[in-house]
């Protein structure tokens, strides 16, 4: 599935193999997966349960590694990096939006958003300014002191997005970002992701079960039994 030239590829998976052992029997997930995603693309990955969506996302996040093959993002070979290097790479290049927000309940909105900035050499004032800017961007200005438990699901996901983009990463990985939201909130979140992609040039990879969510992407890849079987482009 290559629709771009190698030069334009921001994300490139080449002949990636991955299997999990259940008992002594290895269960293959990918047996030679290829994928290229150009910079500033917005890709939705769909597919039935067990098709390998989560494994793909984990590998793109550097949380999981392929057994064989090449995993290159922004010119970096993630498959050759150690655990510490991948942590540092995540901190500087990637934001994750989780299905269930994964906000730390004992921290308020501003503190949750600030977490990725703690990994950067910024002063407290610089961090505060950047947190204020992204909270403004996601429409939650003035809610800095609110705790996650005091917010709706949609608001919590906005905080999740603010946390994902506060360090200004190039890549946004979204794991079912609207899976826990009502339609209206889901559309607001998807609008926001589209804005981040189109206006700020973020590369977005979104795993979703929701066909309507996939419509916000520039293209949709269908994964089944470890391979891409179909690709739809947005009109």
């Amino acid at each position: 599935m290559t629709d771009s030239t190698k030069d334009e590829a921001y994300i490139a998976l080449k002949n990636v193999r991955k299997s999990y052992k259940i008992g002594i029997e290895p269960i293959p997930i990918f047996s030679g997966l290829d994928l290229t995603i150009p910079r500033s693309d917005f890709v939705a990955v769909m597919g039935p349960s067990g098709s390998g969506k989560s494994t793909l996302l984990n590998m793109l996040a550097g949380i999981d590694l392929p057994d064989a093959g090449e995993l290159r993002i922004g010119g970096n070979r993630l498959d050759r990096m150690g655990e510490t290097a991948r942590s540092a790479w995540r901190a500087h290049n990637m934001g994750i939006v989780f299905q269930f927000y994964n906000l730390l309940p004992m921290l308020n909105a501003a503190e949750n958003v600030e977490l990725p900035l703690l990994l950067k050499p910024l002063s407290a004032r610089e961090r505060r300014v950047r947190v204020g800017k992204v909270l403004d961007l996601v429409g939650l200005s003035g809610r800095e002191k609110q705790y996650p438990a005091m917010m709706s699901g949609g608001q919590q996901q906005r905080i999740g997005i603010a946390r994902a983009i506060v360090a200004d990463p190039e890549l946004l990985l979204c794991d079912e970002p609207t899976g826990d939201l009502d339609r209206k909130s889901a559309d607001e979140i998807l609008d926001m992701l589209r804005f981040l992609n189109r206006e700020l040039g973020k590369t977005v990879v979104m795993v979703t079960h929701d066909p309507q969510a996939a419509l916000y992407a520039r293209r949709t890849l269908h994964l089944d039994k470890g391979s891409f079987v179909e690709e739809n482009r947005a009109a």
Binding site: S87, R90, A91, P116
Partner: peptide, 14 residues
């Protein structure tokens, strides 16, 4: 577990 894994996924070190 979730909190630790979340911050680690964000890039926090061991």
């Amino acid at each position: 577990t979730i909190e630790i894994a979340t911050v680690r996924a964000l890039g926090f070190n061991r």
